[in-house]
Amino acid sequence: MPVRRGHVAPQNTFLDTIIRKFEGQSRKFIIANARVENCAVIYCNDGFCELCGYSRAEVMQRPCTCDFLHGPRTQRRAAAQIAQALLGAEERKVEIAFYRKDGSCFLCLVDVVPVKNEDGAVIMFILNFEVVMEKDMVGSPAHDTNHRGPPTSWLAPGRAKTFRLKLPALLALTARESSVRSGGAGGAGAPGAVVVDVDLTPAAPSSESLALDEVTAMDNHVAGLGPAEERRALVGPGSPPRSAPGQLPSPRAHSLNPDASGSSCSLARTRSRESCASVRRASSADDIEAMRAGVLPPPPRHASTGAMHPLRSGLLNSTSDSDLVRYRTISKIPQITLNFVDLKGDPFLASPTSDREIIAPKIKERTHNVTEKVTQVLSLGADVLPEYKLQAPRIHRWTILHYSPFKAVWDWLILLLVIYTAVFTPYSAAFLLKETEEGPPATECGYACQPLAVVDLIVDIMFIVDILINFRTTYVNANEEVVSHPGRIAVHYFKGWFLIDMVAAIPFDLLI
Rank of each mutant, 00 (worst) to 15 (best):
Q75G: 12
G294L: 12
D144L: 14
M60S: 01
S207E: 08
L385H: 09
Q84I: 05
G120I: 03
F129W: 01
A169V: 01
N317V: 07
G381S: 07
L109H: 05
T17W: 13
D346M: 05
V222Q: 06
M308A: 11
S104K: 08
S320V: 14
L87G: 12
P240I: 08
D321H: 06
S206L: 09
V138N: 06
L296Q: 10
G345L: 06
F348C: 08
L109A: 07
P361V: 04
I358M: 09
A85S: 11
A282C: 08
K93F: 11
H70W: 15
Y43M: 01
V341E: 03
R77I: 15
D119V: 09
L69P: 01
H254G: 08
A172Q: 07
K373D: 06
N128W: 06
D16R: 11
Q84N: 06
H221N: 06
P299Y: 05
F163T: 15
M308V: 12
G306A: 12
I123G: 07
T329D: 11
V295T: 14
A80K: 10
A193T: 05
R56M: 03
A260M: 07
C105A: 12
G120T: 06
H309R: 09
E289A: 11
V138T: 14
P150Q: 14
T162P: 15
L378V: 03
P150Y: 07
G88R: 14
P141I: 11
A79P: 01
D199K: 01
S182E: 06
Q247L: 07
R242D: 04
Q61W: 08
T353Y: 05
G187C: 05
L69G: 01
L267E: 06
L349E: 11
V325I: 14
G238D: 15
A97L: 14
V198K: 03
D219G: 08
P352G: 07
V384L: 05
P298Q: 08
G184K: 06
E208V: 06
L200P: 15
I358R: 11
S266H: 10
V59N: 01
R164G: 14
R56F: 01
T305K: 06
E177V: 03
V8S: 10
T329Q: 15
T375V: 14
S178Y: 06
M124G: 03
Y43R: 01
R280H: 06
G183Y: 11
D197R: 01
R292F: 03
Y327M: 08
F98Y: 14
D219N: 15
L315W: 03
G262S: 15
S26Q: 12
M133L: 13
K116V: 13
F48G: 01
A79L: 13
D287N: 14
T162F: 12
K364T: 07
S261T: 06
V59G: 01
P202I: 01
D102F: 01
F125K: 01
A382W: 15
L171M: 15
F98D: 01
R148Q: 07
L315H: 14
A32N: 01
L171S: 07
V180P: 06
Q25K: 10
G103A: 07
A97D: 14
Q376N: 14
C64F: 02
E95T: 08
L338E: 12
P237R: 08
V115E: 06
V8P: 07
E23S: 11
P386Y: 03
A34V: 08
T319D: 14
R301T: 11
S266W: 04
P299T: 12
K101A: 05
I30T: 01
A260F: 08
D119R: 06
I123R: 11
T13S: 08
S255C: 05
R4E: 13
A290R: 04
P205I: 06
N33Q: 07
T353A: 14
P249N: 10
D102L: 01
P245T: 06
T367L: 15
P298A: 06
T174M: 05
E90W: 13
V341H: 11
G345V: 05
E95V: 08
R366G: 05
P114Q: 01
S313D: 14
F125T: 08
G294W: 04
A244P: 11
G189C: 10
L349C: 04
Q75T: 12
N146K: 06
